[in-house]
Design a protein around this nucleic acid. Structure first.
Length: 170
DNA sequence: AAGTCATACAACCGCCGGAAT
DNA sequence: TATTCCGGCGGTTGTATGACT
């Protein structure tokens, strides 16, 4: 299959301030019309996906950076309990936060916090745990959160990008 | 002061669904 | 209707930085 953008010499890794400026300037001028095709005229040797990710997660106006508030953390925990790893849905409830940021924060902080809460369970010796464990050495079949299974997987993204907006292809 | 380890964050990868043709 | 392409999502990895020994 012919990819619309060849993989030749595509840059990877951290974005430079220069690249950020190029992407912002291009989007300001022409809008978002096709990530895969935009990179070249924007002067970026990046994949469309990389550009999109950079824009959505860091450059888009209204993105909050920095510490999560107590309220935000509680919301994340609550929604994660209900929805599982549907980060984009959770992100939609937290204006200015991105799914990637929430996901990272969850793995870095919140999941641990919940894990530590397991310590509040009644004490059991290893022998007792073995005795009452019916499971084998394999891990549980999935890590799908309990509350989730029945949910349809069509998460509607709420990243309100000006995507394919009025601006015509240059 | 130097080396090692742990943590947090940024970015990439692969897969899937929907739209367009 | 079938195929192709693009955007979006979630999982995972790589790297920089700070804490600890």
């Amino acid at each position: 299959m012919a990819k619309s953008v060849e993989n030749r010499a595509l840059k990877k890794g951290a974005w430079s301030p220069e690249e950020d400026k190029k992407l912002i300037a291009y989007i300001k001028r022409y809008g978002i019309w096709n990530w895969a095709e935009m990179a070249k005229p924007a002067g970026l040797q990046r994949s469309g996906k990389s550009c999109r990710l950079r824009w959505v997660n860091y450059l888009r106006p209204g993105i909050k950076h920095g510490n999560f508030t107590k309220e935000e953390e509680e919301t994340i925990i609550d929604l994660h309990e209900k929805l599982g790893n549907r980060w984009s849905v959770i992100a939609s409830k937290l204006p200015g936060r991105t799914d990637n940021e929430i996901k990272n924060h969850w793995h870095a902080h919140l999941s641990k916090r919940l894990k530590y809460d397991l310590n509040s369970l009644p004490e059991m010796s290893d022998a007792e745990i073995d005795q009452y464990s019916s499971f084998e050495t394999d891990p549980p079949p999935t890590n799908v959160p309990n509350a989730l299974i029945s949910e349809s997987s069509t998460a509607t993204s709420t990243n309100s990008l000006p995507s394919s907006s009025s601006n015509p292809k240059p």
